[in-house]
Design a protein around this nucleic acid. Structure first.
Lengths: 302, 302
DNA sequence: CGATCTTACGGGATTCGTAAACATA
DNA sequence: TATGTTTACGAATCCCGTAAGATCG
């Protein structure tokens, strides 16, 4: 037979067991003494036996009550920590957020936002996977990431996608390059003939550029994996490159110039992907809200 | 901040977490669905955050709620076992009784009563110390025995004594002994001249006999520790002895005769000793009541 | 006789169930 | 539209505090 028992009853029981005095135990529980007495009596009735031997002058635990005291104290401790735990998680005093983001976002735009999040919730563990789109999706699907910022929509597969931001592209070249002679927008056609340093075909950046040019192709003589390497090559004058605006921080150098590129369809959409069947944890929700409030192109690129 | 939380709230939470459906979870808790809904809401308010993400069509644990679920299930398990434990002890389904009793009582009169107690409460552990009075007292004082049957009053020392029974004495001798020629009561004076086999001076039996005779003394030529040895010696015709009535079972033999002894003050009082500051456990109380109901000389010597 | 627990009882808060409103697939 | 949750609300219950009563040292 299962009983209804409240922490208040247990606290009353423990107080009386420790103080051996109804009046003082009632005070500790912020109850009138008769109310406290009734509480103890009801607990004893529920349990089906005396927990205390009492006269008007003396209150003592029964042998059975002494056994219950240990259990009651342990139960109270555990109940308190259980509640404190969930409160901590809800209040973001503890917890963990795991996200996945394209390297181009993870390296440039994300860090200052993560810093702000960490300053606000210093005891939340952060796990950022700077991986390509496919891995981003896999991590969200398997629950290893709470959400992801990637450039594929992937609306199927139990994921929910919402548009996060749109990233345009820039030409980057050295200041002594002919294309650096002008400022302002650049048409893709102006690139023809110039050697272009590109990223590997597996990267979403490269795929966007290729798709925008189709069926034309840039004259590429060098393919690299990392944008930072691309920047170094451009600095050496080996060629120019076309990169998303959000990655321009890689090319922040006195001798490098950037010009926006205009081309139909040359726009990289970034989506925020999350599981459709699961709500975000409080900690993840906090990061989500911060990212959404600071999404590039909507208010201020942080 | 400590919260009031009841097992009913926890059970409701666990039911909803498992069934993911308010209506069915309410049924399991024997509540109307709106009442159940209010219960969950109040639990969430106390905790300060959502435990479930719910629409009218879907109920899912939040990440925080999932963490709380484990704690809630553990808490319920422990609360149930704690209550079951104390109930078992109160109901004498489990427990332990330790008593101390004079060897003369422990060997003859006590065993059938213990057997009855054990038949009634088979899962109560029994611990009987068949020791002399001083040890009986010490065991009760130190808590190693719940109560004791001994022949010293020992009203001081934090013990409470109540008269248990009075034991008279018998002469025992072999059928060919002159004292066996008569039946009926025997005066102590009739013993003079006959060799008497006695117990050691440390035994309460011997002390009673000596006190009753004072300042006379029996002609003792043989002192023994155990009554069973006394019986063997008497059977051999080495002498007679004077022993408490309750120990006559040692002398139950075809060739042995027993005659009641009349003498002023030759009466052994047996007291039940218990700690004054402590009530008996339920298990001990059960044995106490059985022993009191069956005390020798008050109704029937079992 | 004084300190302390229990009982009695009226008032207030809590909680229940029914019924209606609301929301989502 | 059907299923299922929330809101509204009157009623029953529970629980508290004051005051009187009982009990033990």
């Amino acid at each position: 037979m299962q009983i209804n028992m409240s922490t208040r009853e247990l606290r009353a029981f423990v107080a009386l067991a420790e103080l051996r005095n109804f009046t003082r135990a009632a005070e500790r529980c912020h109850l009138s003494q008769p109310a406290f007495s009734a509480l103890i009596r009801s607990l004893e009735e529920h349990i089906g036996g005396r927990l205390f031997d009492r006269t008007t002058r003396q209150v003592e635990l029964t042998v059975e009550g002494a056994g219950f005291l240990e259990a009651a104290q342990r139960l109270l401790r555990e109940a308190d920590t259980a509640v404190a735990d969930v409160r901590d998680h809800v209040a973001r005093r503890r917890g963990r957020v795991a996200i996945a983001a394209l390297p181009s976002l993870a390296a440039g735009w994300l860090p200052p936002l993560l810093a702000r999040y960490h300053a606000r919730y210093p005891d939340i563990e952060l796990d950022v996977a700077d991986v390509l789109s496919d891995d981003c999706i896999a991590r969200v699907q398997t629950g290893r990431a709470d959400f992801a910022l990637a450039s594929t929509q992937a609306s199927a597969n139990g994921l929910r996608a919402e548009r996060f931001c749109a990233d345009s592209f820039h030409l980057v070249c050295r200041d002594d390059h002919p294309l650096a002679a002008q400022t302002g927008h650049l048409k893709l056609s102006e690139l023809s003939g110039w050697p272009v340093i590109q990223l590997a075909r597996s990267s979403s950046v490269r795929q966007h550029v290729d798709a925008a040019l189709h069926p034309r192709r840039l004259s590429s003589f060098l393919e690299l994996e990392q944008l930072s390497t691309v920047a170094a090559m451009v600095r050496e004058g080996l060629g120019v490159s076309v990169v998303p605006t959000l990655t321009l921080f890689h090319f922040d150098h006195p001798r490098l110039r950037a010009r926006p590129v205009v081309a139909a369809g040359l726009k990289r959409q970034v989506y925020l992907l999350r599981r459709a069947d699961r709500a975000l944890s409080s900690a993840a929700q906090g990061l989500y809200e911060l990212l959404m409030a600071q999404r590039p192109g909507f208010r201020s690129a942080a």
